[in-house]
Design a protein around this nucleic acid. Sequence first.
DNA 1: TCAACACTATCTGTCGACAATATTGTTTTA
DNA 2: TAAAACAATATTGTCGACAGATAGTGTTGA
Lengths: 227, 227
Amino acid sequence: MKNASITTIADKVFENLCSAIVKGEIPAGSKISEPELSIRLKVSRASLREAIGRLEACRLVTRKANIGARVVTLSQQQLIEIYQVREALEGMAARLAAQNCTEEEVKKLQRLVEHHTQEANTIDGASYFQKTGDQDFHFHIVQSSHNQHLINLLCHDLYHLMQMYRYQYGRASHRAVAATEEHRYVMNAITDGDGEMAELLMRNHIRKSRLNIEQLLESQAQTQVQA
Amino acid sequence: MKNASITTIADKVFENLCSAIVKGEIPAGSKISEPELSIRLKVSRASLREAIGRLEACRLVTRKANIGARVVTLSQQQLIEIYQVREALEGMAARLAAQNCTEEEVKKLQRLVEHHTQEANTIDGASYFQKTGDQDFHFHIVQSSHNQHLINLLCHDLYHLMQMYRYQYGRASHRAVAATEEHRYVMNAITDGDGEMAELLMRNHIRKSRLNIEQLLESQAQTQVQA
DNA sequence: TCAACACTATCTGTCGACAATATTGTTTTA
DNA sequence: TAAAACAATATTGTCGACAGATAGTGTTGA
């Protein structure tokens, strides 16, 4: 069920590098040397280059002709940009989900929110559950939009970058309970088939996440100045 | 000024194929044979495959392992999906442009709208000017958002697909004057720095384009049934 | 006649080698 | 000594060839 389409060497290398970059094992901003990596991974440069091309497609690396590939550098600015894009796209996804999703999808969404609510309330250090739970929720709504372009953009292209920021910026969310509450509002709007409201609430939810992170980064910057 | 970064063979091949696909010279849905194309274009399969990879990244072709690449098939459904994505993204772009754009960008936007208004009013069969004028307008606003992710998504990834639909679906727009009018509204909101309003108006504008096209396709389908 | 299988041909995936470009280090010159 | 020109080195881009997979064809058997 999981990743049934990993057949070629290039696929495996891509998965490898993608994971390594997201987790920071290959540092942000570092150069990707084709000869070195092809030796270390024991694959030809052709397969490696294919994989690097796909990394470029989902913006985990940038390439320049005759110079090479570099892992993207994470910046506060870029993180904010991603949240702005997410606000727009996932807002639309929520609207379309409210209009198009099936009975089963609604039920699954309700189960998800129920599940996460319990976790957020019972478990104290709910960071892990909160993270994946949050991802599940957003992922499921995007899928329920039934707009394949939206799904590709959010679940394939932007997904890895978002994960990368989560891994490396950490994000100790104090918003677990509040976020779960907001999820419930979005869920209700989708259940009611109210696209307009679903979009509004989803955008509100993501905007608050962004503002929370901006604030967090702000305070971190001040702490660093003090230290 | 134009395409200063076409240096490698793969770049040229990509530009070639991209243009050919957009214009329909390589028919939608047709298979892309690597041996055949590499001979016809007189390049190695490595360069060709690099180019095909980039075509896949901007969704002009789809690839399956061990089977090959196919030009995307244009469907009414997909066109609608693209417009929904555009509505979300360009709406956000307009909002950000209103907040972030420079004095020069505002002035250029005003010149653009002024120019297009004259064309739309004076020239009768304004389809050509309307098309490129429309593109210029939207392109400029996206650039003015100063959100690099947004710019990449709209001006690189989605751009070619949109062009492909314009070429092959034709679109005899009866909305030239109305659209130009809507452009003016958006421009005013951006000039005022009213992000909320700019987003609203831009979304409205794109939504109307979508509805217009849906209606057009509807009537075409009926005509075909009658014939 | 049709279905299943084997075989062939063709295509994609992968590899190692060569060519072109960029980077580094050294020498030369003002 | 500093800067420019050059040489050496390493890296990326490109190529042709081989390996593995797929699809089509023909054959065989019920």
